[in-house]
Amino acid sequence: MACKKVETLTDLWAENGILTKDEYNSIIAHIKSCRDCSLKYSHLMPFINRDVNNHFTAGTLPEKDILSIQKYTGFHLTGSINPPIDSIMDNVLNAQNRFNRNRRLHRVMSAAAAVVIIFLSSIFLFSYIQNSKTEVLVKFSLTAPEARSVSVVGDFNNWQPSPLIPEGSGKNGIWELRIKLKKGRVYTYNFLIDGKTWIPDPASPIKVKDDFGGESSLIHI
């Protein structure tokens, strides 16, 4: 076979990835006797062999020729390479043990973190409950014998009337209501008589102008 033909066949292979076995064998036969083509194509032969014979090895060539041409065809996937199988296995198991230890440690740390969070939450909750004890019971009281109803309205109840109740038998005209309010704040409020008349608390010494031309009482607890 002429060198030109080998060139054409290898081009054909590069183009299509296909050669017949006869074409492949003819290339092998040629490069065994042609030094130039051997230099050019011997390293390409494992690839061509894979496409022709479905193996990256000598494949279907006659047994007596395999040894002599295997230098052209390449790979045999056996033999000893590093690291050895036992060593890989040992490292796999050691790595897995380390991983498991770390995972256990991670779980312990997560559990510890959860305990800390619960503890801190408890402190927060306790503090909240404690704070609730800083509320005080405030008695709103108004003497209004003529009134049929008295309510207290203020910023502590969003200006929604909270009705006062007549004290005792109701004959003395005193209306009262006890409301829990938080300490440390200033509240603004009025009394509402018969659902229509707004007045400030006559007993409160501090009063401020409201937005409607009237007055509201202030109380600091």
Binding site: M45, S68, K71, S80, N82
Partner: peptide, 20 residues
Amino acid sequence: SLPDNSKGADPQILAEKRDT
């Protein structure tokens, strides 16, 4: 680093195979 599985083969062929 490549496998040597051609025990008994011609050393020159073996060397060329591994070179490939």
